[in-house]
Design a protein around this nucleic acid. Sequence first.
DNA 1: GCCAACGTTGGC
DNA 2: GCCAACGTTGGC
Length: 156
Amino acid sequence: MAKKFWLMKSEPDEFSILDLKRVKKEAWSGVRNYQARNFMRDEMSVGDEVLFYHSSTNPPGVAGIMTIASKAYPDPLQFKKSSKYYDEKASKENPRWFLVDVKFKAIFPDYVTLKKLKDEKKLAEMKILQKGNRLSITPVSASHFNHICKLGGLKL
DNA sequence: GCCAACGTTGGC
DNA sequence: GCCAACGTTGGC
């Protein structure tokens, strides 16, 4: 299967790319949106490459890249009563929420701010730049991915 | 903190 | 199945 490219958002106060660098690999838990879940469950494969986006921070932007390190499996937090991600309608027989593991790859030497993305004509069609987009996981084209890596100062 | 945009819920 | 009410996201 051909490699795909993605963008995944995280609030750096919760989990930043520095955290990922430290732990190397992390379960991307807490996604509670069906579209985003479906991307993870149905379309991601091990080895896909991902832009790590820092949201709700100043300034927001792409901080680096990571790779998909597992197939989708049920998010354990949906079963954990004490978690804010607990879902009483989910059961182990019939899980509702899925996640994938992600693996650290690189931090961009140059942080690519949202403003910079907006200034790039080539990137105008990116989902993240569309009005009202709130989806935390979106597919990215290979050319957009490569272009953003270049803006980030990463030699591929 | 504000608010626009979007998703989800639940009454009917 | 509609849609109003409510909750969340996320840039500013």
